[in-house]
Design a protein around this nucleic acid. Structure first.
Lengths: 155, 155
DNA sequence: TATTGTTATACTCTATAACTATA
DNA sequence: TATAGTTATAGAGTATAACAATA
C-alpha cells in the first residue's frame, strides 16, 4: 500500500504543498532580517505596502479594504495599524461621509519608509529566488497568478 | 521614481513573494480545517509525516534529524513532539548507543492517524491547486523543486 | 569542550466572540 | 437591523538564551 512509485495527482499535490511551505518559510526568514532595520515585521510591511498602493490611486483605504486585500479578518488589521501608527508610518483619519469608517493615511515618514522598504523587500525576494532564471520566474509568476490573483473585473 | 511600467526582475520577484504568501496562507487555512478532525495542527501533521517517512526506511529519526528536515530549530520540535506524544501518535525512545539522543517512534495509533492524514493532506492541497492542469502542476513542482529541494547526494 | 535536547520565556501572526458606535 | 471597527482573549508557530546530561 505504500508504493515507491508515486505519480498520482494527489500525491504530487501534497508534495507541492510541502515545497510551497518551505519556500514561504524561507521568505519569511529573509524578510524578517531585511525589515528589522526599518523597525517593521513582515506583516506590517505587507500592510504598509498595501496602503501605499492605494495612495497611488489617490484614495486612502478603509480598514475593511485592507482586511479584504490581505485576506485576513478585520481584527488582524487593527493590530497591524496600531503598530504602524506607533512607528509613525500611518495615521487613522475619519471618513467625513461615514463616521464608522476609519481611513488609513500614509504619513511623510511612512512614505520615506516605503522607499527603503521596497529595496528590502526585493532583496529578500531575490534571496529565495536566486536559483531561477528570469524565464523561470516569469513562468512561476504565471502559474501562481492563475491560483491567487483575482480576475480583473467583477461584473 | 514610481513608474507604472514594472518589468524589472526585482519588482517581479517581489510580486512572486506576495503570491507565494497568499497561496501558502490559503493552504494553511485548508489544512487547519482538514486536520482538525484528526486532532492535529498543520505543523504537527508535518512532523508526523516526516517521522512516518523515516519509518519507511527502517529507522526512527532523532530530534535533531527532524529539526534539520523541517528547517526549524530543535526547540520547536520539542513542542511538536510533546503534542504528538500526548495525542498518542509517537513515543520518545532512548538511543542505546548515545544516551543524549532521543529517538521518535511511531505508535500503532500514529500509524493509523497517518493513513487518514494522507487523505486529509491531499484534499487540502487539491483545494488550493484546483485551478491548475496536471501539466501545470508538474511545471510548478519542477520550479519549486529547483528552489527548495536539496541535491540528492552530499559527497 | 562539543553535542543533544530541554526548561524558561517571548514575540509574531491570526483567529473567534462580544461589544460600541454608527447607519 | 446591518455595518465598521474595536476590546478581550486565545492559540499556533517559532525563536533566543540558559541549562543539564552526556560524549
Amino acid at each position: 500500500m505504500s508504493r515507491p512509485v508515486s505519480s498520482e495527482p494527489a500525491e504530487s499535490s501534497d508534495r507541492l504543498a510541502e515545497q510551497l511551505l518551505r519556500l514561504t518559510r524561507r521568505l519569511h526568514h529573509a524578510q524578517k532580517a531585511a525589515f528589522r532595520p526599518l523597525g517593521l515585521t513582515p506583516a506590517q510591511s505587507r500592510l504598509l505596502r498595501t496602503v501605499g498602493a492605494h495612495g497611488r490611486h489617490g484614495e486612502a483605504p478603509r480598514m475593511a479594504d485592507l482586511a479584504r486585500q490581505l485576506e485576513v479578518v478585520p481584527r488582524a488589521v487593527t493590530t497591524l495599524v496600531d503598530a504602524l501608527e506607533e512607528r509613525g508610518a500611518v495615521r487613522r483619519a475619519q471618513d467625513p461621509d461615514n463616521r464608522r469608517v476609519v481611513l488609513i493615511e500614509l504619513t511623510d515618514e511612512g512614505h520615506a519608509i516605503l522607499g527603503r522598504l521596497r529595496q528590502a523587500r526585493q532583496s529578500a525576494a531575490e534571496g529565495i529566488l536566486e536559483g531561477l532564471t528570469q524565464e523561470q520566474r516569469v513562468q512561476l509568476g504565471g502559474l501562481l497568478s492563475t491560483l491567487v490573483d483575482e480576475p480583473e473585473n467583477g461584473s
